[in-house]
């Protein structure tokens, strides 16, 4: 556990999580959520939870992004509220 790397990753993760729920365009939110998932993968791997990191990388950054993009393609792209 490197203190500075941990701090930077957690800070960037919080920024990504906040951006994912505040951004208006749903496609942007999906891509930011994928970036959040990638940082989460690095964090899990750094905490020696390799299995969880692997699941986060495949499901979080891979499958859910494709699913969200497919869902956005079938609905409207920008949120109304």
């Amino acid at each position: 556990m490197i203190w500075a790397l941990d701090f930077a990753l957690l800070l960037f993760m919080i920024i990504c999580a906040t951006a994912a729920i505040t951004v208006k365009d749903l496609l942007h939110a999906t891509i930011v959520l994928a970036a959040y998932s990638l940082i989460m993968t690095v964090l899990w791997a750094e905490m020696n939870a390799v299995d969880v990191a692997f699941t986060e990388a495949t499901v979080g950054a891979g499958i859910t992004t494709v699913l969200f993009i497919a869902a956005i393609a079938r609905t409207r792209r920008s949120s109304s509220d």
Partner: peptide, 25 residues
């Protein structure tokens, strides 16, 4: 490889299945 290697290291059936599905995507 991930499926077969799951017993002795990182990975397993779920992750391997998801990676396999990613190839179809």
């Amino acid at each position: 490889y991930v499926i077969v290697h799951g017993a002795s290291g990182a990975g397993g059936g779920f992750q391997g299945g998801v990676v396999f599905a990613a190839s179809f995507i």
